[in-house]
Amino acid sequence: MHPTPSTLTMQAPAREVGIAATVGRTPLIPLRHLARDLPPGVEVWAKAEWFNPSGSVKARPAWNILRTALAAGRLRGKRLLDATSGNMGIAYATFGAALGVPVTLTLPANASPERLAMLRALGAELILTDPLEGTDGAIEEARRLAEAHPDRYCYVDQYNNPANWQAHYLTTGPEILQQTEGRITRFVAGVGTSGTLMGTGRYLREHLPDVVILAVQPDGPMHGLEGLKHMPTALRPGIYDPTFPDGVIEVPTQAAYAMVRRLAREEGLFVGPSSGAAAWAALQVASQLREGVVVTIFPDGGDRYLSAPFWEEDA
């Protein structure tokens, strides 16, 4: 049963949209031990996005994309179709199940077994693409399917859909402004589709013109930071404006892995590799400050990566 369009707001009532009503309002957690050598006036905080339904930051854009497509009547009689590296698909499948919208996803066949199992458990139809072609290959397959079967699929295209970054403009940005009581001076976020960086960054810059916005990406085209894109060598998402961030921080995979282990053992934060990259970048930024409040985003939890080798010291 689909809710009526007038109730399809970003924070809709649970009686209308079920679990989608719990998107956002995630905790902001200080890095107390990893930041202990910084000057007393420097703080580093992380937004714990695995508290979202579906377990990742992707709950925000998935719900905003789904609700706007539903409100516009674009999903009538069709399946929601998109390419994903995993987390966005899990979020679509979660809300699709809750609202009776069938979901079809294209994703590389080497997605982690945990992710594939979750997607199947949530009832999504999966179309696995050639791992050699990466996420860009999954995007091309979604485009091909949408063109070949326009009556079957509504291709929502997270890489080019403004509802992606607008989800963060509507929720993540205001939450950070409120949780830091307007004290944030640096916002540091990884880029995959770039929705988090663009939406949160736009909101913060409008309200705090002096805030510095920094993008985080892997330091090369071959990397182990699932969920992040090396923009110079990937299909650039249409929603990404490379002139928007004040700077780009490149993170070596091994540094991010080491940080993931430290976050677990020294802060009790069991997170995934893109969170390790975000923390490494945020601490680099903080180490150059005399005072300031650095906020970053931890996109997901570590339980999605239990089969990965990087939990061991020599990985």
């Binding site: 990466g134 890489y159 589709t193």
Partner: peptide, 10 residues
Amino acid sequence: LRILPSIAGG
């Protein structure tokens, strides 16, 4: 032989 990348953003 195939060299496989990790899965990038989204």
